[in-house]
Design a protein around this nucleic acid. Sequence first.
DNA 1: CATGAATGAGAATTCATTCAT
DNA 2: AATGAATGAATTCTCATTCAT
Lengths: 197, 197, 197, 197
Amino acid sequence: MSPRTQKQFEVIRESRRTQILNGALDLFATEGYGHCSIAALANHLGISKGLMYNYFESKEQLLLAIIERGLSEIMDLFDPDHDGVLKSSELVNFIRKVFSTMRSDQNYWIMFIGVIIQPGVRELLRDKPIVHQMERFTSMLRDYFERKGFEDPYLEVLTLSAMIEGLGMLLIYTDPSIRIPDEMIQKFENRIVEMYK
Amino acid sequence: MSPRTQKQFEVIRESRRTQILNGALDLFATEGYGHCSIAALANHLGISKGLMYNYFESKEQLLLAIIERGLSEIMDLFDPDHDGVLKSSELVNFIRKVFSTMRSDQNYWIMFIGVIIQPGVRELLRDKPIVHQMERFTSMLRDYFERKGFEDPYLEVLTLSAMIEGLGMLLIYTDPSIRIPDEMIQKFENRIVEMYK
Amino acid sequence: MSPRTQKQFEVIRESRRTQILNGALDLFATEGYGHCSIAALANHLGISKGLMYNYFESKEQLLLAIIERGLSEIMDLFDPDHDGVLKSSELVNFIRKVFSTMRSDQNYWIMFIGVIIQPGVRELLRDKPIVHQMERFTSMLRDYFERKGFEDPYLEVLTLSAMIEGLGMLLIYTDPSIRIPDEMIQKFENRIVEMYK
Amino acid sequence: MSPRTQKQFEVIRESRRTQILNGALDLFATEGYGHCSIAALANHLGISKGLMYNYFESKEQLLLAIIERGLSEIMDLFDPDHDGVLKSSELVNFIRKVFSTMRSDQNYWIMFIGVIIQPGVRELLRDKPIVHQMERFTSMLRDYFERKGFEDPYLEVLTLSAMIEGLGMLLIYTDPSIRIPDEMIQKFENRIVEMYK
DNA sequence: CATGAATGAGAATTCATTCAT
DNA sequence: AATGAATGAATTCTCATTCAT
């Protein structure tokens, strides 16, 4: 009967926030951000429409939160010891993890890519801390290729990034009925690892 | 003022259709398909809302027409002599043209990719003739790599496709203020040409 | 069967606009701006909800348009020959007309006063041409009292304005069951006319 | 830490109630009753939304309490010895106090007038004791003018009331940048006092 | 062929109020 | 007494589409 403590409220908020974030990712990924209404989201989550606005300012801010969290998760796969220097094993590990994630969470990637290239989304992201982390990603990669003795490190950054992104795209719009076989993805992954390990 | 002939009507219709298609691509690319209303489109084109429906069944069908035309244009870069066999010079030409288009029409690519990965769009495209052409593209490429003696032709199809798509993605979401330099894109292009010519 | 001309469309728009303006004034006055929904307004007018947005950007802009039109009408009672100089007969006429309007359109005044003193409304009105006209009103009145030889013309502007406004207020919140008798309003009106004719 | 006595509880409740009343007046006056949410109010007060409902049945009842308190305060300026008879000095005092309050608490008047003329508010007030007090105010004033030998006492009630209300209105909607000078208000006040002292 | 007024089905959002703790 | 998460009804606003002219 005693009132909830500050702590209790925080726990409730945090878990609810996560629940909404996950549910929204789910729905946005399968139905598309544009076609998914707040009503549908609330329904999917079993909560009221209003509650979402208790946690996020708008549908757009909710999307932004999803993107930020997603990018953070990718960045966390990178430079796990946070020493600012990329080791060969760390890069290999990163590549392997990214590929396995792409294989297992395709809907996630569809939504993710579909969303981050929307006009307007980049503007929303600008000045978010996550963007600076991504720049750090690029520069660490460049240093790595420099140390490895590649002739044009930046070209390699470009090549590696493009190959990863590109496979993501292929996975997305290749017709499900003629799915790219998993062992082919493995080969592709191995090729990249061989090139840059 | 003699009445227009059948022929004249067709010319008028065709040019109007093209005008709408171009204007819609413009606007969808810069504003995003979802954020762009028919009213805004009509305004942008200097025509009435009703007229659009005179040429396209719905906003969705308009989008579809844009995509089909876009894919056709890409396919037309390919196998120009339509003999079903890809020559080395044809492939090189194709790669060069794709890259130069990507450099000059970035908004087009942003919209294009943003649109084709929307959930629902792939369903719309299914069974459209253009999709069969794209499958033809893949199989011709595979044949080409086979003739060239590559160990795993399909892996090369994957690699080439991924590298092109991937660069497209990078161009799209790289912050404009730190644009990828054109000579770097050239180097990347050259690398691909060297790999597969 | 021929398409409507530009002129025809203008006629339609103007008459519709007026209809909406009148209906909204009606409803805002009797129900109160805050308690009157767009749905109720559309219903009252026998039009769709959406149509109102075809004519006014928002509920707030509709309100603004009502106020502007209302103020214009009052200003039009003033200085009818537009020579910038107020004649005694013109002032008397103005006072008489204002009082008769207040008597006959009480709901209008209730809404009008209720609305123009809302926080935020003054900001909306700022820079509208009508405000400049109102300043012209004050300065013409002051000139008039100066010519008439009043010791402190501005004090008379204040007194006259306050008496008119004040009666408006009294009419508004006096309990309808003990209505101020019309002949009392007449006496009040005569007193003002005597003071300033 | 002995348990609080009944008395202590009452003191706490009363001070909380006053705090809420003052804060609500503040916010309603500056933001407008309609635009001010309970959440905003709670935030402004540093209390929870729920607590407000512990003291007032609803937002509407809170508004009513503010109005009643405000009217009471004005009435208390009147007939201070509660003998039911208005003395000349009492009337002068009343006028002086009303004017000084209007000068110092303009936001209060803006909200107050803005609120009491809302459609629906008069209905809320009906049958409240405060309304009877206001009628008593009118009748005492009338008696006063009768004793003073005015030809038409009710006309003077009307005139005095209108002049006070009217100045209130002028203060409210006169553009702040061209504020009515305080000495002009003084002159206006003196004029009224001279008329009716 | 061309127009734009009109519709109406939803969409996002707000917010007074409740209630478990 | 006090909290704030949760609700849900109401509200503003959007926009693809129709249709009379």
